[in-house]
Structure formats: structure tokens, C-alpha cells
């Protein structure tokens, strides 16, 4: 900006004009003015606390304690035990996120609009989100454990003769992902659904569309972008599963997720470059999946859904 205001520059451009007003105008026209300074703290924050550490970690991952720049990545992918964590994580996160989103749709569809007790239901649903994974893990250990209430009920109903093993394995972690993830997905889906103008469906009804046709041709297409976003956010939650994988899973075996591998590298072996490399792999995989979903989302209609807000 200082360049354009300098007298030199105005002389060079020829016709006499007021340079101050000139560049102000031109910048204001493009939407740049003093108000943009309000963005400065956030930009500073994101650069210092997110981008810098991220690139620092990226750089670190290419400076392993021994070997060439890529040797830590090679080490991770070369070791079946480490490599397998990727599939373990995806095997947990993808089904859990999908189930959470898909189960939310009919329930939210049923529960939009007003009815008595809606507020209570939504309040109850916020509870597990607030509790977080650590407490859920503790509860699941008690509740789903071999002597817990769940197995007692199953045995009392004679559905099973001996306790079903539900903790310290895949299912324990899976349930913890449902308990915290479903309400989150549900509330998001519900809010997206409420944002769709209900008169659209009524219009479709007057045009002769049945229940399923209305849902399929009007509501669902308008809801799809929201579902994609919900899936992404739920997937992020599930993908970064860490405490419950340790506490209710089997952290040495079937629920050894990638974050455990990264954590062990950093805090048990103190090999920060290796830990950074694993973290980068983790981030990359997650971003790939999210970009695929978000890319698919851009192909959907994402304009106004008729809400007057």
C-alpha cells in the first residue's frame, strides 16, 4: 500500500489525482478497509498456534533421529503392527460415523416440528456430549462389564447364558463412539432439518407427492449438504478416538488406533520426529476422507433451503 501512495508512483502513472483517495477507493471497492483489522488477532492466533506448529511438526517428521528424510514414514508403513493402526482406526471411525448420521436422519425427521417434551429430549441428548469420552469409558466399563447391568439384563431375559464380552475389545470402543457421537450427529441433523422450510414439503404434498417421494425428492436433497457436514464432524470425533480406545478397548491389540501409536512414539519413546510423522499420516488420511466428502458436497445444491432467516 505504501508503494501506491508514494508520490513517485503517482508521478509515474501520469494523470494528476489525489493518490490517497485513489487507493482507498480502489481497496474499498475490493472490500479492503480498516475493518479488516478485526481479523488480525484471529489470523495471528491461527498462524502462531496452528500453522506454525503444524509446519514445525511437518519439518520435524522429515528429520528422523536416524536415516534419510523419509525413513520415519518408511518405518511406519514398513511395520505391519504400526501400519495396521490405520485400518483399525478406519474400521472404528467410519462405521461409527455412518451409523450415527444414518440413525439420526429418521429420528430427527420424526422429531422436528414441535411436540411436548422435545426440549427434554434434546437436553438429555446433550448430556453425553458434555460428559466426553473419558467418563463414558468409565461408565461403559461398569455398565457393559461382565457383571454390569447390561449383561445382567441379558441373562435375566435368558438371551445369553454367560456374560457377553463387550469391553476391552472393539465393541467397547464402538459403543463409546456411539454414545458420544450419536447425540452430536442428531442435534446437527435436527438443526439442518429445521432449517428447511416446511412449506416446501407441503407444496410437494399438494402436487401429489407421497410421504416417501416428498422425503426423497424434496427434503433429502436439501438435507444432503448438511448430512455431509455432519458426517465430517462426526467422523473427526470418531477418528481421533484416544482415551476410550485405551480405557475400554484393547490398546495393545484390536483397538490400537493410530493416535495410540502417535502417543506412544512421543511420550513413551520420546521420538518426536517419528511421532510427528505418525501424526502427519493421521492428518493426511483424515483430510483425504473429509475432502472426498466435502468435494461430493459441492456437487449438491447448497443454496437457500427456503428458511426466512
Amino acid at each position: 500500500m505504501s508503494v501506491t501512495t508514494s508520490p513517485h508512483a503517482t508521478v509515474a502513472t501520469g494523470p494528476p489525482r489525489t493518490p490517497r483517495a485513489h487507493w482507498r477507493h480502489r481497496l474499498a471497492e475490493r472490500g479492503v478497509d480498516g475493518q479488516l483489522w478485526l481479523l488480525a488477532p484471529a489470523v495471528l492466533f491461527v498462524v502462531l498456534l496452528f500453522l506454525y506448529p503444524f509446519f514445525y511438526g511437518l519439518g520435524l517428521s522429515f528429520q528422523p533421529t536416524k536415516g534419510g528424510p523419509f525413513s520415519d514414514y518408511a518405518r511406519f508403513f514398513g511395520d505391519a503392527y504400526q501400519r495396521g493402526t490405520i485400518w483399525t482406526t478406519l474400521g472404528l471411525a467410519l462405521p461409527a460415523a455412518l451409523l450415527n448420521v444414518l440413525a439420526s436422519v429418521p429420528i430427527a425427521y420424526r422429531m422436528r416440528g414441535r411436540f411436548r417434551g422435545k426440549r427434554l429430549v434434546t437436553i438429555l441428548l446433550v448430556v453425553p456430549i458434555t460428559l466426553g469420552t473419558v467418563l463414558t469409558a468409565q461408565g461403559l466399563l461398569n455398565f457393559l462389564g461382565p457383571t454390569g447391568w447390561f449383561n445382567r439384563v441379558l441373562m435375566a431375559l435368558h438371551l445369553t447364558d454367560e456374560p457377553v464380552r463387550l469391553v476391552h475389545n472393539y465393541w467397547g470402543v464402538f459403543f463409546s463412539l456411539i454414545i458420544t457421537g450419536f447425540p452430536f450427529a442428531f442435534l446437527l441433523v435436527l438443526s439442518y432439518l429445521s432449517g428447511i422450510d416446511p412449506t416446501l414439503e407441503r407444496a410437494a404434498a399438494t402436487l401429489g407427492a407421497g410421504w416417501w417421494q416428498r422425503f426423497r425428492t424434496v427434503t433429502l436433497p436439501l438435507l444432503m449438504p448438511g448430512l455431509a457436514t455432519t458426517f465430517c464432524l462426526t467422523f473427526v470425533l470418531a477418528f481421533s478416538v484416544f482415551p476410550s480406545a485405551v480405557l475400554v478397548g484393547n490398546p495393545a491389540g484390536e483397538t490400537r488406533v493410530i493416535s495410540i501409536a502417535a502417543y506412544q512414539a512421543a511420550y513413551e519413546q520420546y521420538d518426536y520426529p517419528y511421532a510427528s510423522a505418525i501424526a502427519m499420516v493421521m492428518g493426511a488420511i483424515e483430510l483425504v476422507i473429509i475432502s472426498v466428502v466435502l468435494l461430493a458436497r459441492t456437487r449438491l445444491y447448497t443454496g437457500s433451503s427456503g428458511g426466512k432467516g
Binding site: 491461527v46 496452528f50 506454525y52 514445525y56 511438526g57 473427526v236 481421533s240 493416535s259 493421521m282 483424515e286
Partner: peptide, 25 residues
Amino acid sequence: AAYLVFLLPILMPPITYGIPLATVL
């Protein structure tokens, strides 16, 4: 671009940026 950068920390698993961040801190 600004919006995307602000969105990234939410889209990333905390462990992913947490480990480099902790290292820097």
C-alpha cells in the same frame, strides 16, 4: 482461504496437531 484456515483446527483430530503443538510449546 481465511475461512478454510480457521476451519482446519476443527477438522483435524486433536492428536494430529496436538503432538506438534505440544512439541513447540
